[in-house]
Amino acid sequence: MNGNERALQNTMFECWRNGACLGYVIRALEILDFEPTDIQLVVSEMRELFDFVSIDEAHAHYCKSPYCFAICYPNR
């Protein structure tokens, strides 16, 4: 696999993970009866964060938050 193919594969994998993450959040917000306009605001903010916060940074933020219900390991 050459560098371009690897980059494309990584991009496709990131899109899937981002989409799955958004799907979880959307479902949770719908279950909690959030308004569609509020869900759209959250989704828009998350899309912005995907561009500026790495997966490792997001995981570390979760682990340090009061919402962390799992044992957090340094490398996910």
Results as ranks from 00 to 15, higher is better:
Glu5Asn: 15
Leu32Arg: 14
Tyr73Thr: 02
Ala70Lys: 01
Ala58Asn: 10
Cys15Arg: 05
Trp16Ala: 03
Val43Trp: 11
Cys21Trp: 14
Phe52Tyr: 04
Asp33Val: 12
Ala70Gly: 11
Ile55Leu: 15
Tyr67Trp: 14
Leu22Pro: 05
Glu30Trp: 01
Glu5Thr: 15
Val42Pro: 02
Asp56Cys: 14
Leu29Arg: 01
Leu8Gly: 14
Gln40Asp: 14
Ala70Phe: 04
Asp56Pro: 15
Pro74Val: 03
Arg76Gln: 15
Ala7Lys: 04
Ile39Thr: 07
Cys63Ala: 10
Asn2His: 04
Asp51Ala: 03
Arg76Cys: 12
Phe50Glu: 05
His59Lys: 05
Asn18Phe: 02
Ile26Ser: 11
Arg47Leu: 00
Met1Gln: 09
Pro36Ser: 00
Leu29Gln: 03
Leu32Cys: 15
Gly3Asp: 05
Met12Asp: 02
Asn10Asp: 09
Gln40His: 13
Lys64Glu: 12
Met46Asn: 01
His61Glu: 13
Glu48Met: 02
Tyr24Thr: 14
Leu29Trp: 11
Ala70Arg: 14
Tyr62Glu: 04
Glu30Gly: 08
Ile71His: 09
Trp16Arg: 00
Leu8Tyr: 12
Ala20Pro: 02
Ile55Ser: 12
Glu5Cys: 15
Leu29Met: 05
Trp16Asn: 03
Arg27Thr: 10
Ser44Trp: 06
Gln40Met: 07
Ser44Cys: 01
Phe34Leu: 12
